[in-house]
Design a binder for these strands. Structure first.
Length: 107
DNA sequence: CGAGTGACCGCAA
DNA sequence: ATTGCGGCCACTC
């Protein structure tokens, strides 16, 4: 049964992802923690696959700064999507997470 | 309703 | 620095 009146994890995650500015990226763990479940980083990825396809999931990367494999087109498509937004992606399919990581608290 | 799954993370050799 | 394993929580079928 699902009579949760409060915000669902998926809703919060999608809200955060939707608010990620262009050219920036966030980690699954961070979004999960901000959503209230630090140990639910996997769920964030799972939601990405079943969530709204219009969401910028491409701006969501793992703690290593590496792109995901379930993205439509594989990491290749993911890399192209990020580069299309101005995000530099290395040949190893990794972004400069240290510089492109975005904190919701910081503008 | 029950069980399986997953675009992960952290720690340990 | 790399590799391997388990655990974690919510969503979907």
């Amino acid at each position: 049964m699902n009579q949760d009146n409060g915000p669902k994890f998926a809703e919060l995650v999608q809200e955060y992802v939707k608010q990620i500015p262009e050219g920036m990226v966030m980690t699954y763990g961070q979004i999960a923690a901000l959503s209230g479940n630090a140990g639910a980083a996997r769920i964030v990825g799972g939601l990405a696959h079943f969530g709204n396809p219009e969401f910028p999931w491409q701006r969501v990367v793992n703690k290593n700064g590496g792109l995901a494999s379930g993205y439509p087109g594989g990491r290749k498509g993911h890399k192209k999507a990020l580069e299309a937004e101005g995000v530099f992606v290395s040949e190893e399919y990794k972004v400069n997470i240290k510089e492109l990581i975005w904190h919701p608290n910081q503008s």
